[in-house]
């Protein structure tokens, strides 16, 4: 039995204002898996994601990344291992050029010079945008920005890639190209999404989070075929789409 990349046990969290977002979440993701995290708005998906790299600390329970507990002293290594790609690439890309932005993460890990340049190129090539290195992020198309955002995280050679709504705002062609890229990456993926066809296409396994607890965990196709479960948790396939 391998050590899970993500190991969450009984994670509960309440925001300082008192709003309880998570009620004891158990989640295990193993190396090489691609898992979709599904759930209606307000289910606690984003809150959960912020626990994975220690931006939020659970009020109860524990989070471990490849066996390393997420604690204050392990924070930098945890953030290297868990790469989060946020939903709006304009939030993720904050440096004046693509190259600087992709270099930001590995530079924080201490890389410099030729090693850093090689890492930047490797990450940009992995998502097929090596030619954009010297452009400014605001001169790129939305699809290009989304890819560069993924490269900024890949440059840290993470053990797991956590994507928040990767297909949102993409036109159908960019959406498909991104799926091809994600399928080609040799990295464990946890994908938070409302785009159920995308989940079916990319992830064999899905976890449904609803009102702060995991209510279902299993094969994506089986889960989405369960009409009762879907209706209970406000999940719907697009009209005309069948499994």
């Amino acid at each position: 039995m391998t050590t899970p990349v993500l190991d969450l046990r009984g994670v509960a969290y309440a925001y300082p204002g008192g709003h309880q977002a998570l009620f004891g979440v158990d989640l295990h993701v193993h190396p090489g898996e691609r898992v979709a995290l599904l759930g209606p708005n307000g289910a606690g998906k984003t809150t959960l994601v912020l626990h994975l790299n220690g931006v939020l600390s659970p009020g109860a329970g524990s989070v471990a990344v490849s066996g390393l507990p997420v604690t204050e002293e392990n924070l930098l290594e945890v953030r290297r291992r868990v790469g989060i790609v946020f939903q709006d690439p304009d939030d993720q890309l904050f440096m004046p050029t693509v190259r600087d932005d992709v270099a930001f993460g590995p530079a924080n890990l201490g890389l410099r010079g030729a090693e850093l340049d090689a890492r930047v190129l490797e990450a940009l090539e992995a998502v097929g945008v090596a030619d954009l290195a010297d452009r400014a992020p605001h001169h790129l198309s939305f699809g290009q920005r989304r890819r560069v955002a993924i490269a900024t995280v890949l440059a840290m050679r993470p053990e797991i890639l956590v994507l928040d709504e990767p297909s949102s705002n993409l036109d159908p062609a960019s959406r498909r190209e991104l799926a091809d890229i994600l399928r080609g990456l040799e990295v464990t993926i946890l994908m938070v999404t409302h785009d159920l066809p995308y989940a079916v296409e990319l992830c064999e396994r899905s976890v449904v989070l609803s009102e702060g607890t995991v209510v279902a965990d299993g094969g994506t196709r089986e889960l989405l075929a369960d009409g009762d479960l879907m209706a209970r948790h406000r999940l719907e396939l697009p009209v005309g789409f069948s499994i």
């Binding site: 930098l76 946020f86 939030d91 993720q92 930001f104 993460g105 924080n108 995280v153 840290m156």
Partner: peptide, 15 residues
């Protein structure tokens, strides 16, 4: 949040 998630610790790396 995005900066912190990529290991930012208050100092700007000179790349």
């Amino acid at each position: 949040l995005a900066m912190v998630s990529r290991g930012w610790s208050g100092r700007m790396p000179m790349t």
